[in-house]
Design a protein around this nucleic acid. Structure first.
Lengths: 151, 151
DNA sequence: TGATTTTAATTCATATGTGAATAATACACA
DNA sequence: TGTGTATTATTCACATATGAATTAAAATCA
């Protein structure tokens, strides 16, 4: 493997490619995409949440969320509730049917995550997560000088 | 951050989200998407390569590659060359125009990657990459027992 | 040789990602 | 009070992801 194959972004993609198919196969059994699951996963622990906050929690871009919530609404798993105080805001809420999925899906998700965690030693697992967060912080903070555009 | 936010798949997404915008802004200056750059990046060091191998190297799914190469062809950056020995195979080749991009883009890519690398200590950088590879191996190898589907 | 199977690339239908633009509403303030 | 500005969600245009199906061309073998 050369410079390109071992670049961080390629390794991140590669890791996701090795991890996600298993999750997707699971979610597909419940007629869910992984993005749809992410939304439900957040709603299971938030009574109501605005689209903006949902985007931040799920890491799904707002324009994508619109369609994702549309489809979840069509399946009657969530509802949109417009705020009365501020009519710009839309709260997304899990329906009863949407809440009932938690018990069925979550154990399988946990099982996959446990297998995932066992791919490295316990202390390595922690360090991997810490390093990823460190990279995020480092890229977001302006401390590390960005390369100026000189084109 | 709870269980969900610190799950590996979410951290991988989060890290990509913190890294990719900078690359995308760079590629956009050359009217390229990051996927299109990945194809060119591979072609810059391969005279010719089959679609299947290109998919493996770029980690781009074959159906996506079709459109990506279509658009690169339209911009006259690459060409499709059907093999004479085996007419099922299509080689993808960088055009002169496509090759000329290397000198202009690569230095900027290197600069971003250097900044990226400086977000963590040198030995952490190596370990991060090793751990990601270890996770990939662990998930792909059948050693670690997969959870059987009992639905 | 001719039927069968395998392989490489592509197509299809659907869902999502990306960046810019828009509509509706709230807010600040002269 | 009226007006400019900021905010929230959505829309738009385009590019890509996903999994299944298809097409064309080998390769296999009775």
């Amino acid at each position: 493997m050369n410079e390109f194959d071992t670049s961080l972004s390629m390794l991140l993609h590669k890791t996701l490619d090795s991890v996600m198919p298993e999750f997707r196969a699971l979610f597909a059994r419940f007629d869910l995409t992984d993005q749809q699951w992410r939304v439900l996963r957040v709603l299971w622990e938030s009574k109501k949440i605005t689209s903006a906050d949902l985007s931040a929690r799920t890491l799904l871009p707002s324009p994508s969320l619109v369609g994702i919530i549309d489809r979840l609404e069509k399946k009657e798993l969530v509802n949109r509730v417009r705020s009365v105080k501020d009519r710009r805001i839309v709260y997304v809420v899990a329906s009863q049917k949407g809440r009932e999925l938690e018990t069925q899906v979550s154990p399988h998700v946990a099982a996959i995550n446990e297998r995932l965690e066992r791919t490295v030693a316990p202390e390595e697992w922690l360090q991997l997560k810490e390093l990823l967060l460190k990279v995020c912080d480092g890229m977001n903070n302006p401390e590390t000088q960005k390369t100026p555009i000189n084109g």
